[in-house]
Design a protein around this nucleic acid. Sequence first.
DNA 1: TATTTTAATCGTAATATTGCAATGAATACT
DNA 2: AGTATTCATTGCAATATTACGATTAAAATA
Lengths: 110, 110
Amino acid sequence: MGITKKEIFSPTQNELATFAKVLGHPARIAILEYLFKLDSCVCGDLVNEIGLAQPTISQHLKELKTLGLIQGNVEGTSVCYCIHKENWKAMKTMLSEFLNHDSTNMATCC
Amino acid sequence: MGITKKEIFSPTQNELATFAKVLGHPARIAILEYLFKLDSCVCGDLVNEIGLAQPTISQHLKELKTLGLIQGNVEGTSVCYCIHKENWKAMKTMLSEFLNHDSTNMATCC
DNA sequence: TATTTTAATCGTAATATTGCAATGAATACT
DNA sequence: AGTATTCATTGCAATATTACGATTAAAATA
């Protein structure tokens, strides 16, 4: 169906999945890496840097913004996007906790 | 188009996105959490535990297996699935490195 | 051998995602 | 005012994902 049955999972599981999902596209990874590399950024730079059409970049930026990972301020004709530090940190904490599930003491069953 | 232009991104960016993508569904998060909670597991347990139909669970397991995050061994009529420790660790390292991009010294541009 | 159990696979329907051309909105520049 | 620049939005086509009923495959058991 293409529709995810969110209601049968916990809020944490859904939130984790949502964060992971937004990172699940190389363009968004590239955008975030570029934003980290710079201090600031405008959409035009990203179009040149990444090589997707402007509407496509704009769409990816919107998804990142909706989740709160980046923020954008209008500056004249261009828009200055940058990482939303606090939200990034919150995501990092959440994902790290999941990734750090310790498996070293697990019985080897297979 | 629904098709991702992987060729314009670096191998690392694509791999990162692929890992994140497989974590981008609450059912797969739930499966992994359940596998961590136990020592071993069979598919039937997961169907009861999670509440999706058996073919759906099987499909999610396949994706996790294809990426190497879990491994499964046939034991009689059932299959024993568990976390693939090494590959999990590799993914953890890769994602952590990305998440740990330091933004504390970034100029506040917006 | 027939039946049961367990999980993979097939086929299909519904929805989501990705990408871009065309267009629109807002500001800067001449 | 008129033009150029920059980015968002709209509309659409192509592909991917999610979910499940039906079926199949393989091993255990009666």
